[in-house]
Design a protein around this nucleic acid. Structure first.
Length: 552
RNA sequence: GGGCCGCUAGCUCAAUGGUAGAGCAGGGGCCUUUUAAGCCCUUGGUUAGAGGUUCGAGUCCUCUGUGGCUCACCA
């Protein structure tokens, strides 16, 4: 199999020539270079060559395999719906009678059952499948022969005719005219399916994980349930948007290319602007840009978009992921917690129509209120360590070693994160808010009144995953500057996770920032929960993969 | 980076160290209400690659490649 890319010539003679010249396809694809139409040749498989012959035969018979015009009158669903109002007749003479409803449907040919001088087939469009029926005495012997010989599973076709009900009761299009819309050169993986007791049973499914992600279009084409999952994802995003819009939050867009990254503890991707001779970072969060807008006078802003973090990949980490953040003036983290409960149940109600979900075998109830406990209590409960007894990194590391951890750092905040991640997070299956985080790991959150070492921050956990993170935002410019300095000292000078000093952000805050509550939620992880997917790759259309064989 | 598992026909999968197979897809036939249509015939393989052990390797060993899971890393 050659992965070099696009073809230059569809002629089978040429394809054969290429094959004997074994070097052509490989050497045309220079290692380290991006393939272009110039340096790439294509090698066809035997199945593809057979289809290319059919394509040429169609052309030779005056049938354009890629016509420019389409004339659809009904989707599959519309055709079926319209004919459903025609009462089903019973008795031997029933099938074939009834009113004539003309329809032209388009779609991909998914199943063919040839019976000599008649053929049944199913075509599938974006709304579903519809059966078509062709008789030699109606569309002509030649056309039926052409269909049988030169049309293949996977081709897009257009069928015009009248609707009727077969003797088994299936609404079917009796075809008078058949048009090729787009010949498929490469066969789709052969998957068959049947309905048994209302359940779809799939035979010979296309199931190789890597191929499914790498060629998502094939995955989508042959696995309709995958199409459904991404529709669900879209509905989740639109429900979040609707919820916030309805509450007067303004949707905004902030820079993805940033001269300075911030708002989270993560390594960034670096890029470069050629003309300006300027290094730029892909954003790791929207936070600092969104809060600047509160200085500008907007009271409620939100953004849904992509963050990029140059970290490891795992079942819950993709290098780029979709984040929702909002900032709400004159609110604090208690208000945000309440709004979070409302928002999550709103999305569940609107997308699923229920508030209980099943995730990884667990039955999870999203109905508010969710239990709220402090981070200190949670860590004490799940690890036996009270971090108040261990004010230094050395002391905390020692306590963690005593319970089986093997910490590689003595940075107190990192240790605490690790403790949370391994001992607490996996246990939080039912929705839970952990609140009141140590100031050390929360440089952008406001301290709790009367407790300068603790900040008003919470994270929401569902299904053992951190789903959201929020706080009463720090709006004291002098305190903020101090926090940046502390972070700079706490981390190694070369540690890219340390928050860089963002002078412009401090300047903005010095102009006056209203007190506000901020919030961030990982859309991908939330979608995993609502669709019961064990890995983020199932809810990202094109997840990051290692480079494929043969690619540079 | 470590550990575990995998890589056999286009797809899904078989094959005690002893002739590389099946279903579907593909090709050729038959069949005018089928629906995983059916029936007959049939093409298709450097078993990821290289080396080794053996009379004999898909199978055992080594190395390489590649992917998945997992640990580490990572809000």
């Amino acid at each position: 199999m050659i992965y070099c890319g696009r073809f230059l010539t569809p002629r089978r003679e040429d394809a054969r020539t290429q094959k004997t010249d074994g070097e052509t396809s490989r050497s045309g694809c220079l290692r380290g270079s991006i393939p272009t139409a110039r340096n790439v040749m294509r090698e066809y498989t035997e199945l593809e060559r057979i289809r290319l012959e059919k394509l040429e035969r169609l052309r030779a018979n005056g049938i354009e395999p890629y016509p420019a015009r389409v004339k659809r009158t009904h989707t599959a669903a519309e055709a079926i719906a319209q004919y459903s109002s025609v009462p089903a007749l019973s008795g031997e003479a029933a099938h074939g009678s009834g009113p004539e409803i003309a329809a032209t449907v388009c779609g991909r040919l998914r199943a063919v059952r040839t019976m000599g001088k008649a053929t049944f087939a199913h075509i599938e469009d974006g709304t579903g499948r519809i059966q078509i029926y062709m008789r030699a005495d109606e569309i002509g012997t030649d056309m039926l022969k052409t269909f049988g010989r030169d049309f293949d599973l996977g081709d897009f076709i257009q069928a015009s005719g009248v609707l009727f009900r077969t003797k088994t009761g299936e609404i079917t299009l009796r075809v008078r005219e058949l048009t090729m819309l787009a010949k498929a050169v490469t066969p789709l993986p052969a998957a068959k399916e049947e309905i048994v007791d209302g359940q779809r049973v799939i035979h010979y499914a296309f199931s190789d994980t890597e191929q499914r992600y790498r060629q998502r279009y094939v995955d989508l084409a042959v696995n309709p349930e995958v199409r459904d999952e991404f529709r669900t994802r879209a509905r989740i995003i639109s429900a979040f948007r609707r919820f916030l819009d309805d509450r007067d939050f303004l949707e905004v867009e902030t820079p993805i290319l940033q001269p300075l990254y911030g708002g989270a503890a993560a390594r960034p991707f670096t890029t470069h602007h050629r003309q300006l001779h300027q290094d730029l970072y892909l954003r790791i969060s929207f936070e600092l840009y969104l809060k600047r807008l509160l200085v500008g006078g907007y009271e409620r802003v939100y953004e849904i978009g992509r963050d990029f973090r140059n970290e490891g990949v795992s079942f819950k980490h993709n290098p780029e992921f979709t984040m929702l953040e909002f900032y709400w003036a004159y609110a604090d983290y208690n208000d945000v917690m309440n709004l979070t409960e409302q928002m999550v149940t709103y999305v569940a109600d609107n997308v699923l129509g229920r508030r209980t979900i099943t995730y990884d075998g667990h039955r999870i109830d999203l109905t508010p209120p969710w239990p709220r406990m402090t981070v200190r209590e949670a860590i004490r409960e799940h690890s036996g360590i009270d971090y108040a007894d261990h004010p230094t990194g050395e002391s905390l590391a020692a306590a963690m070693r005593a319970i089986g951890h093997n910490p590689e750092t003595t940075i107190w905040g990192k240790l605490l994160d690790s403790l949370l991640g391994t001992n607490v997070e996996p246990k939080l299956i039912q929705p839970t808010f952990l609140m009141d985080y140590p100031r050390d790991i929360s440089p952008l959150a406001k301290a709790k009144p009367g407790d300068p070492n603790t900040v008003e921050r919470f994270e929401g956990f569902i299904g053992g995953m951190e789903v959201c993170n929020a706080f009463s935002e720090l709006n004291d410019p002098l305190d903020q500057e101090q926090r940046f300095l502390e972070m700079g000292r706490a981390y190694d000078a070369n540690d890219e996770e340390a928050h860089p000093m963002d002078e412009d952000y401090l300047r903005a805050m010095r102009y006056g920032m209203p007190p506000n509550g901020g919030f961030g939620l990982g859309i991908d992880r939330f979608t995993m929960l609502l669709t019961d997917k064990a890995t983020i790759r199932e809810v990202v259309l094109y997840p990051h993969l290692r480079k494929a064989e043969g690619e540079a």
